[in-house]
């Protein structure tokens, strides 16, 4: 069963179109929603939470249509962290806990206090005096303290120092040890997604370029470096996209189309995504 399903979801704004997006996040998995700034990641998250109305398509979250009246109860099972949308700045962590206790039926004070301690968040300091890292950590502590089944995190790791990012990614990994728990994590920092995600959905200029298991993606594609004439001799449909350098051409290729024995470079998810984006631009 899927935690999130999107079928043909479309949203049009002036100068932007989220175009016919379909993907699914299986339960127990972490799906990374990757894309450049303005690709449509935050719009997709808002649509999933029914914070904005879709123009077309269907969205189901934890088995429920997100525009049905029953979705309000489903929100009890969803922890949300948004980029640059926070608690009012005059509140402190203790007050945030008291407000959330009245918001979520399954709010657990002990779990919240434990997360605050673990993440080293001061109890009485006003939110406006928090660093961005502390703000995110508090938001994550809140998201984890009402026994959620699904976490939806929009750019939760951007702008954080590597230590804090690592700390937070460990928390996400711990969360998905329960096979009923799932995470949708949007980011433009592909290296973070590579560390924790099982699936990658790549949005580019409002279109879904791919949604694939991360490991399969790395199995499917490879980077090669060779002279242009050698690249031209590769079988048709092998090269997905390429970049010319002074001495050689770097190209993203389909591994299964490569002739046996062709030397490939060390391939990361980030390079695959970058080349796919470039290929998409040319298309």
């Amino acid at each position: 069963m899927n935690a999130i399903e999107l079928h043909g979801v479309t949203k049009r704004y002036d100068g932007f179109l989220l175009d016919n997006v379909s993907f699914a996040l299986p339960r127990g998995a972490i799906l990374g929603l990757v894309g450049e700034n303005g690709a449509g990641k935050s719009t997709t998250i808002k649509l999933i939470m029914d914070a904005i109305r879709r123009d077309a398509g269907e969205i189901r979250v934890l088995g429920e249509d997100n525009q049905s009246p029953a979705f309000r109860a489903v929100k009890e099972d969803i922890g949300v962290v948004l980029d640059e949308a926070y608690f009012p700045e005059v509140l402190n962590a203790t007050q945030v806990g008291a407000v959330m206790k009245q918001t979520y039926q399954r709010w657990n004070d002990a779990v919240y206090m434990n997360h605050l301690k673990l993440l080293d968040i001061p109890l009485k300091k006003a939110f406006r005096d928090f660093s961005r890292g502390m703000k995110m950590k508090l938001a994550i502590a809140v998201a984890l303290s009402h026994d959620p089944k699904l976490l939806i995190l929009d750019e939760a790791t951007s702008g954080l120092d590597p230590m804090v990012r690592d700390e937070i990614l460990t928390l996400f990994n711990d969360f998905t040890r329960d096979e009923e728990h799932s995470i949708l994590l949007s980011s433009h920092i592909v290296s973070d997604l590579e560390k924790v995600c099982d699936y990658i959905a790549f949005l580019h200029k409002g279109k879904l370029v791919l949604c694939e298991e991360k490991d399969r993606l790395l199995e499917q594609y490879a980077i090669v470096k060779m002279p242009q004439y050698a690249l031209d001799q590769l079988p048709a449909d092998t090269v997905v996209s390429s970049k010319s350098g002074p001495y050689a051409v770097e190209a993203l290729v389909k591994r299964d189309r490569l002739p046996h024995g062709t030397q490939t470079e060390f391939t990361t998810l980030e390079t695959v995504i970058l080349f796919l984006a470039r290929g998409g631009d040319r298309a």
């Binding site: 939470m49 949300v80 949308a85 926070y86 009012p88 700045e89």
Partner: peptide
């Protein structure tokens, strides 16, 4: 603080 954006979720 853009609280509304968070609260609607």
């Amino acid at each position: 603080s853009k609280w509304d954006h968070l609260a609607v979720m």
